[in-house]
């Protein structure tokens, strides 16, 4: 076993690459595909997920000892749903357009496998500090995946990044990239490449 600091660090770092929820564990695929047609959507989504994941992790790791095992999943969901509703209302109030673009995917954070998975696997078994680090690591990992996806899709599909033109006029926009098929193809390619890199690294 590694020393304690080390393990704290690894709680955080593992979500970024080794156990990246999007690229390695294939969790939370729905928003990854749905909201990554523009970088701004991806950022908003990531922010919402970070908020919900961290907040829920805190609450659940605090009350973990009081929840009976039989109803723990239901309780987790209620906690998560509360935070999701908060995030949803907040976005709808202050960024109505963004909220509209994200459609039902902010509410759907409730059922995002990443969140429930972390609650079940980590927060309900560990103390607050570690749970926060774990939640941060995982949600940042999620954000990385989302940013990667949206970067590819927005640049190829629209020639822009976060709305700024990066490729210029000569670029013929690949409309398909911001359409549903583009999402699948991009993610498929990214997953393939990351798996390829991982096996390469393992060998090296």
């Amino acid at each position: 076993m590694a020393s304690k600091e080390n393990s704290y660090f690894s709680d955080f770092i593992k979500g970024l690459w080794k156990e990246n929820p999007v690229l390695v564990q294939f969790l939370g695929m729905c928003p990854t595909l749905a909201v990554t047609n523009a970088v701004v959507n991806a950022i908003a989504m990531s922010a919402a997920v970070i908020f919900v994941l961290v907040a829920s992790a805190i609450i659940i790791s605090l009350i973990r000892k009081f929840i009976p095992a039989q109803v723990r999943i239901a309780s987790f969901i209620v906690v998560i749903a509360t935070f999701v509703t908060m995030a949803d209302r907040y976005l709808a109030a202050f960024y109505p357009e963004l909220s509209k673009a994200l459609g039902p995917f902010i509410p759907l954070i409730v059922v995002n496998c990443i969140i429930l998975g972390r609650m079940e696997a980590f927060a309900s078994k560990n103390n607050v500090g570690r749970s926060i680090l774990d939640a941060l690591g995982m949600s940042f990992g999620f954000a990385i995946g989302l940013l990667l996806m949206s970067t590819f899709r927005e640049i190829l599909g629209n020639g822009t990044w976060l709305g700024y033109e990066v490729l210029g006029n000569w670029w013929d926009k690949w409309m398909v990239m911001i359409l549903p098929p583009g999402a699948f193809l991009t993610l498929g390619t990214i997953v393939g490449v990351s798996k390829f890199l991982q096996t390469k690294f393992k060998k090296a």
Partner: peptide, 17 residues
């Protein structure tokens, strides 16, 4: 090898879409 599993599934989903 690196496309086996989710990779190829997503690509096929792309073609289906």
């Amino acid at each position: 090898e690196s496309l086996k599993g989710p990779g190829i599934t997503l690509l096929v989903a792309g073609i289906l879409a």
